[in-house]
Design a binder for these strands. Structure first.
Lengths: 148, 148
DNA sequence: ACACAATTCCCCACAATTCCCCACAAAAAA
DNA sequence: TTTTTTGTGGGGAATTGTGGGGAATTGTGT
């Protein structure tokens, strides 16, 4: 199982290209995984990068829980799959963020990659700083979760 | 279980490298642990070093209790891993402190390692001195805490 | 079908950082 | 004192990260 670790600040140029951090590229290759999938996070204002194998796995999990004959559930599945793009890595080791997604999470020049175990998140630096630098609630949440 | 003890002053060079004190390295090796994880402390203006095995263990436990489709739980996980980096020890027994973290705790040339049981803290010497020089209310605080 | 704009792709150049190596001072051990 | 371990410093190669030019491709409207 892949395990992405680390926080990398990077810059997106005017063409929407970002260097895909070397640490993560190595983790990917170690898994024999080459391709990435990208979509907006379902809750937060950020983008999520999946190694293709992880993506497939999640699709399977969803599929197995949803009834394809149920209109509502089929719609959920459709929405989940619809916003996804494949994200090739170019010869320079960079990825090209689709305009549509850039706008959805208001990505500017300064971005931040966050290794999230088996996925990688891509944040606008300003957004990430605002959300993640005040860990006030973290303590309480953890306490509640880890309590028996 | 590892148990790091001691206060060691050291110098960080212009490249951001610091010699990882021999005492701590021995404690690490005794555990078969080679790599370290580093992050900013949640509350204080210092960095925390975890033996990798300790970190992974905590991560696994957390992962297994969190539902990745749940917004709040995913946020807890995110806050937990955001800001963490792997910290290899180079051939000279030194670690390279990421620029991002140096700035967050305003690390200069003079630094101080403090063994904190199963983790190690890394302070800017000036910051550490400032805290320890005013022998605040340790006595009173302890008294209050330990009182039945 | 054609012209035009926008986007994507492929290439090159260069700046910054990290890695690997060696040298040596200082302290501790023999 | 000699030897070993610990701690500091720096040079330079290799990798990583940033930027931009311009050809190819796609999409748009006329």
């Amino acid at each position: 199982m892949v395990r992405f670790i680390g926080n990398i600040d990077a810059k997106m140029d005017e063409k929407g290209r970002v260097f895909f951090p070397a640490v993560f590229r190595r983790s990917l290759q170690k898994e024999g995984d080459e391709a990435l999938m990208i979509r907006k996070d379902i809750h937060q204002n950020c983008l999520v990068l999946y190694p293709k194998s992880v993506w497939n796995q999640q699709l399977d999990e969803l599929r197995s829980r949803l009834n394809r004959w149920n209109s509502q559930q089929q719609m959920v599945f459709r929405q989940f799959v619809a916003g996804v793009d494949e994200l090739p890595i170019d010869g320079n080791g960079r990825i090209l963020i689709p305009k549509r997604l850039q706008q959805q999470v208001s990505l500017q020049a300064s971005v931040r990659f966050i290794g999230m175990d088996d996925t990688i998140e891509l944040w606008a630096k300003e957004t990430a700083d605002a959300l993640l630098d005040n860990p006030t609630s973290l303590g309480e949440n953890l306490e509640a979760l880890m309590d028996f």
